[in-house]
């Protein structure tokens, strides 16, 4: 599903709203999250998940082809941690394989 499909689906469920407004709502949400992350803030959406920014320290890496050392500057990367409810929800529906009974597994004698 891409953004335009998300907007279409929301429009179908909210026939009283203009599609133009739904577009603005969706864009505003992602824009706010992006602004917050760019500020270094965390975005926590209970049940859905949390976005945060992680710092990656500067390091000396190597060009794998030439073996030459390259210094990589410190950088910040966006990170998403799935919320508990969503994580459970993802595993509770349809084609999730039936859990294998623990007893049926290989012997777990400590060696």
């Amino acid at each position: 599903m891409v953004k335009s499909e998300l907007i279409m689906r929301l429009a179908e469920r909210n026939p009283h709203l203009y599609q133009r407004d739904i577009e603005r709502i969706v864009s505003t949400i992602f824009e706010e999250v992006s602004i917050a992350l760019a500020r270094g803030d965390r975005v926590e959406l209970r049940g859905f998940g949390a976005f945060s920014v992680k710092r990656r320290a500067a390091r000396v890496a190597r060009n794998p082809r030439t073996g030459a050392s390259v210094s990589v500057e410190e950088k910040f990367v966006p990170f998403f941690k799935t919320g508990k409810e969503l994580r459970i929800f993802l595993n509770s529906l349809r084609d999730t394989p039936a859990p294998v009974p623990a007893a049926a597994g290989p012997a777990t004698e400590p060696r």
Binding site: I29, E32, A36, V43, R46, R55
Partner: peptide, 22 residues
């Protein structure tokens, strides 16, 4: 890092400011 947390409340507020809904 800055250390503020944005939640649904701020997202709703932004949507409220941006679009003419309650």
């Amino acid at each position: 890092m800055a250390g503020n947390t944005v939640t649904r409340a701020q997202l709703s507020e932004a949507v409220y400011q941006e679009v003419g809904l309650s």
